[in-house]
Design a protein around this nucleic acid. Structure first.
Lengths: 237, 237
DNA sequence: AAACAGTGCTGGTCTAGTCCAGATAGGTAA
DNA sequence: TTACCTATCTGGACTAGACCAGCACTGTTT
């Protein structure tokens, strides 16, 4: 057991890794079933599963609940300094974005949201939950919380489009200062359900607090990314 | 199985979570052994282990190889905009930093490092590997790569101290522009060994490329953080 | 006091299955 | 054609054990 390669888990991982690296398993393609793999490697499903979980942690593969394991596509470059929205960012990298609205309503704000938006207790906020895809793959679940005083009637608009553009076109609001908070953690129950992954999958939580061109705190977002879907870039001058 | 709480794994997780939240299991304290827990919850070790792995993914607990499971201390706030070094940052948050040098030598640069430092093929670079602790807990493994032309004789100094301060005091070099690249992934083999965690543990990789006050590219760092040890803050103006 | 050898405890790794629930595709009936 | 049903395939969850390697403590020897 001294040699790493003699451990079944690492050995399986290395073989799969190699196949991926050499393009024999292309991005997005499906791996054989766990039972097939355990047969192929002459071991149990639990051992195979452990190897798969390690590759998942690395970001090489991902799973879709009860559908199978797939090879992860390249990560999206998320540059915090370029204040670009999802749709523009994804398109600029030659990939295809899409958005689905899950829910949108006025509701009482949670304590955490009150704190972020600096609102008094029991305030109402507009909550918009959306899931977003890159090339058809669910990668991001976002909860937006808007201070309702700045956005009268926004719930009447089509929220599948970019909210940033909606702000600009109909409310003459543009993002000014932004504060990001990045936490590596697992996906929340809601996020896991929306992204159709098993609860407890690793994820990246990015909270944004947004100010407008006049320095007023207008909204905040809570983004849950699949951990293998992005890499974050920041240029500090 | 509709109700989440009827799943043994989630149930175990919730019980432990609650104990942690209410301070019955204090930060840094050790959980009972896996076998004890499986007895306590009337289930197998594998099931308990799965629950523990989920809490680990969430960042609530962590393990030390063959020593046991422990409750994670609060995360360190890592603000990319305040160009502060590890020692100052940790101290400012009322916690105790320490550093150990693992290796320091002049060596041929890997292809990746040549690219980062914009050096020609087969260049030599100074590599400094260090591990860092907060309140005694290993949280960070860093590989520094210095362009040797800017740092004659740096290997003679005590590298347990802050390298940033060394740059300033002895080489009159100060950080100017910095580029960060943040990738959620698992720890590299070296990093896992240095942090004494099992390979495949989730981690956060932060690569920094640093320019000096004259805009010259002087060095880069490859940081591997325990994923539950930090949250990253960025203010964009 | 210092070095050493046990010894029990811990997580790490692995076997060999079982049963369940959601996803899928093929076929059948309206 | 369309709607539905059903058999099969997938991963998800779980049981009940096994052996190994490294850690920490204890008691003995030098």
């Amino acid at each position: 057991m001294r040699d790493e390669a003699t451990k079944a888990v690492t050995a399986i991982g290395q073989v799969l890794q190699e196949q991926i690296d050499h393009g024999l398993l292309a991005a997005g393609s499906k791996l054989p079933a766990e039972r097939k793999l355990s047969e192929l490697f002459g071991t149990t499903r639990i051992t195979v599963r452990e190897a798969l979980l390690q590759l998942e942690a690395q970001g090489q593969i991902y799973r879709e609940e009860r559908r199978g394991w797939f090879v992860s596509p390249p990560r999206l470059a998320y540059n915090l300094m370029q204040r670009s929205h999802f749709h523009a960012m994804v398109s600029a990298q030659g990939r295809e974005p899409s958005t689905e609205v899950i829910s949108a309503r006025l509701q009482p704000a949670s304590a955490a949201v009150c704190a972020w938006l600096q609102l008094p207790a029991l305030s109402s906020v507009i909550q918009i939950c959306r899931s977003r895809r890159i090339d058809g793959r669910l990668v991001l679940y976002v909860e937006h919380y808007l201070n309702p005083q700045f956005f009268p009637g926004i719930l009447e608009f089509d929220l599948n489009q970019s909210i940033t553009e909606l702000y600009a076109r109909h409310f003459d609001l543009h993002y000014g200062r932004v504060r990001f908070e990045i936490v590596p953690t697992s996906l929340s129950v809601d996020a896991a359900a929306a992204l159709r992954v098993s609860v407890g999958s690793p994820g990246l939580r990015i909270a944004r607090v947004n100010y407008d061109q006049h320095g007023r705190l207008i909204d905040c977002d809570l983004e849950f990314w699949r951990h293998d879907a992005i890499h974050v870039g920041v240029d500090v001058v």
